[in-house]
């Protein structure tokens, strides 16, 4: 019986060579080599060999700032991770992009449920309850700025703005909602980072917009 991790990874990475900003190359000995996609030809990198090393690599950006959103396009450069097998690869991807492999698996099995941003905001309580007061116009701007792939987040948005099926933000290009599109803009076959519901950081941005505290 095939190892479930290998089966999942084989399905996810079939004919794909990247996920987010990470390039994944197979080695002749059934291992894997991972690096930042910008570092494919860079030999002056620090080498690591454990899945857990990804935790530290993913924690700070090139300037040493904490990365609260792991799918933000600010993964640091200058590292190479040599992994022995598919099990280590799975764990490593989960450290770089927590939960994203599981979302792809759920999506492939037709059990991933999307939640509209309005439903997400209407569900909030406490200090975030006020976020539900955000207008459609403000959502356009907040989502357009916060979620854009160039400097916000590399996820592919699957959720709608509301129960009417309104697009999350018309300020984002149609490719932002296409799982087949490489959100880094490198136009390679990449595993998508699926976003089935607005994250807590976006909820906070909506709250700030309502409170008039955005820095725009």
């Amino acid at each position: 019986m095939p190892d479930p991790t290998e089966t999942t990874l084989a399905t996810v990475f079939n004919n794909r060579e990247a996920i987010g900003q990470i390039l994944i190359q197979r080695t002749p000995l059934a291992g894997f080599v991972l690096c930042h996609r910008d570092d494919q030809t860079n030999d002056h990198v620090e080498t690591f060999a454990q899945a857990e090393d990804a935790i530290e690599i993913a924690r700070y950006d090139d300037d040493g700032n904490y990365r609260p959103l792991k799918t933000a396009p600010n993964l640091r450069h200058g590292w190479r991770l040599n992994l022995a097998d598919a099990d280590q690869l799975g764990r490593t991807i989960d450290y770089f992009y927590p939960g994203r492999l599981a979302m792809i698996e759920a999506w492939n099995q037709n059990r991933l449920i999307t939640t509209s941003l309005r439903d997400t905001l209407n569900r909030q309580s406490g200090m975030y309850r006020i976020a539900a007061k955000i207008s459609d116009e403000q959502i356009e701007e907040v989502v357009g700025n916060f979620c854009r792939s160039s400097d916000g987040c590399l996820r592919t948005i699957l959720w709608k703005r509301d129960g009417e099926g309104g697009v999350a933000s018309t300020e984002l290009p149609p490719e932002k909602f296409d799982p087949g599109f490489d959100q880094t803009g490198k136009n390679r076959r990449a595993v998508p980072l699926l976003c089935q519901e607005g994250c807590s950081l976006l909820v906070n941005e909506c709250r700030e917009a309502v409170k008039g505290e955005t820095n725009e």
Binding site: P68, Q196, E197, C199
Partner: peptide, 8 residues
């Protein structure tokens, strides 16, 4: 406040 989220 981090990933994976409670919703994930």
């Amino acid at each position: 406040k981090e990933e994976p989220s409670l919703r994930d």
